[in-house]
Design a protein around this nucleic acid. Structure first.
Lengths: 327, 327
DNA sequence: CTGTTAGCGCCTTCAA
DNA sequence: TTGAAGGCGCTAACAG
């Protein structure tokens, strides 16, 4: 691998000039520029990132920690974040917390060791000591989609109560009274917010306020399936089911079919927070709140870069739309 | 951020001793060890990765280039690869080629600049010059799921002809003669292999060999939808449709419903290469070949690390299973 | 505008 | 077993 020294020698300039042409914005003559660039191209020179980082204390790498990349919502965020970062000259290091705080912490240490310039966090639960210490050390951090109690960082998140409001309106229009709600963990802000908004809005939308219609899982399909089972085991027979995120809706659907059978289950209308590409194929088709994962990822990156640049950054709530697939 | 110097001073030892304790396996006294470790813990010392990499010419970072992380198959691979890499002390830098060779090349340059220790490649098309040059420079590379012509690297891929064989058997058992096949691009090995295996097996499985029943998209939903449209526009009315990967099946389904209407479409049986979590909810339920993305990711990482260690690595074909959801 | 020089933090010889 | 010293490739400060 050629070094910048090789480039300089071949271009017939000093090391400093080569460096200025190749990265520093310092003033250089057109002649030096073209010579250096030609030499670099001929040698197929690619700068040594670690050396550059060591010297400049900047890596141009952002860390992105999500709870599960297999969740389409997060893979969409990751995709968008990565595109935007790349456009702005940054690379994204992706990590899966895997619903596991220990693993999340381990990744945070790796991020710290790699000396990332900033952190995009779509966290699972509360702030860990590791995270606290990184924040305290001055690392710029931005929260995606979820808030963390006592963590003072700008956030870019879906407007959950607005989204739940759309669902409530729809339920009312469709004339549903006995609605089952399958939520997510209370320890995750999205879980808590969606649950709270739903409970608060039931009465005004003519929905049965019997809490036996409500249960919560872990925002994964299996946990949601069990939660839906519990509701059904209580003898409740809802005319509609509301799943609080994509995997939750999937799990609820499985439980419905398992317990009631396919034909009986198809008499229950399902509505979801998170729109999945296959909802149109289920019968009856599933209506859903669509929130813009790509917008969250993109806004998160631009926000983080502003933070890195030392500018003040305001949190943002991103509002949702409703995809009505009834009739 | 504390440096190793701070740790050494606090532990009352020299810089060299601290380094040996913290990373080098060199001989150290128990006393020195405990002192250094205590000091490191107290200071919350985290080694500077770039500095370490600069010195040791190893980064413990692997690059993973996929065509689209939003495709569940690739997100599963990424997830598994990352887990396995982490278990073995490596970090994964993820990049989306986005079906775009230019972007893929740009990421390859970034990888090179970051001085990754090895590359996991789930490529789009043929080998680019950038890729060739990285290979020539001695970077260990492993291919995931797809082969690349003229690229001499071990591969970990689904056994496509075996998988297609399972589908053919199933089609025969179900008594289908007029089967539509929606394939992928010929430029991608998986597209070419699945198409070839299907064509070769039609006759022996009692399937109509009229090529008007065959068309190909780009392995994405939109392209597949158009391909399916073309087949229908030719006046062909299949009793079954075979989609050559997950997004392709999704697109074919959309076209079927769009052209024939939901009730007519539900008289067509659909079968897919790639099993998606929602296939059970469609009616009739979609049967599918399931290939083990996680196994590919895991095997790819262990293979790559062997390659890095200088050991010989053999390519692997991973065989598939069939999920029969008929009746 | 350019060349020279001094480290960034770490690992790894080389002596002791 | 330990301390001292050199240098990985690069950028930035300083003279010219």
């Amino acid at each position: 691998m050629p070094t910048i020294k090789d480039v300089a020698r071949r271009a017939g300039v000093s090391l400093g000039t080569a460096s200025r042409v190749l990265s520093g914005g310092g003033n250089t003559s057109p002649k030096a520029r073209s010579q250096v660039q030609a030499a670099a191209a001929e040698l197929n020179y690619i700068a040594n990132g670690p050396a550059r980082s060591l010297r400049s204390t900047r890596t141009n790498v952002l860390g992105l920690l999500v709870s599960d990349i297999r969740n389409p919502f997060f893979s969409e965020i990751a995709h968008a974040a990565e595109r935007e970062a790349m456009r702005l000259g940054y690379t994204v290091l992706l990590a899966n917390a895997n619903e596991d705080e220990t693993q999340a912490d381990e990744y945070l240490r790796i991020f710290a060791s790699q000396r990332i310039d900033g952190l995009l966090l779509a966290p699972q639960g509360p702030a860990s000591p590791q995270l606290e210490s990184m924040l305290k050390s001055g690392l710029p951090v931005v929260l995606l989609n979820r808030l963390v109690e006592g963590l003072d960082a700008p956030s870019f998140a879906t407007d959950n109560s607005q989204g739940v409001g759309l669902v409530l309106d729809w339920l009312q229009t469709r004339g549903h009274r006995d609605v089952a709600f399958v939520g997510g963990p209370n320890s995750i802000s999205t879980g808590a917010e969606r649950m709270a908004a739903y409970r608060a809005g039931r009465e005004s939308h003519g929905i049965n306020t019997d809490d036996a219609f409500i249960d919560a899982g872990d925002f994964l399909a299996d946990g949601a399936e069990r939660a839906m089972m519990r509701i059904l085991e209580r003898g409740k027979r809802p005319t509609a089911v509301f799943g609080a995120n994509g995997p939750t809706t999937l799990g609820a659907l499985r439980a419905l079919r398992w317990v009631l059978g396919a034909s009986e289950a198809s008499r229950v209308e399902v509505v979801s927070f998170d729109d999945l590409e296959w909802f149109e194929f289920v019968s009856p088709a599933i209506s859903a709140v669509r929130h813009d994962a790509a917008a969250i990822g993109t806004a998160g990156v631009t926000g983080l870069l502003e933070l890195i640049a030392g500018q003040p950054v305001a949190s943002q709530r991103i509002s949702t739309t409703f995809i009505d697939r009834s009739v």
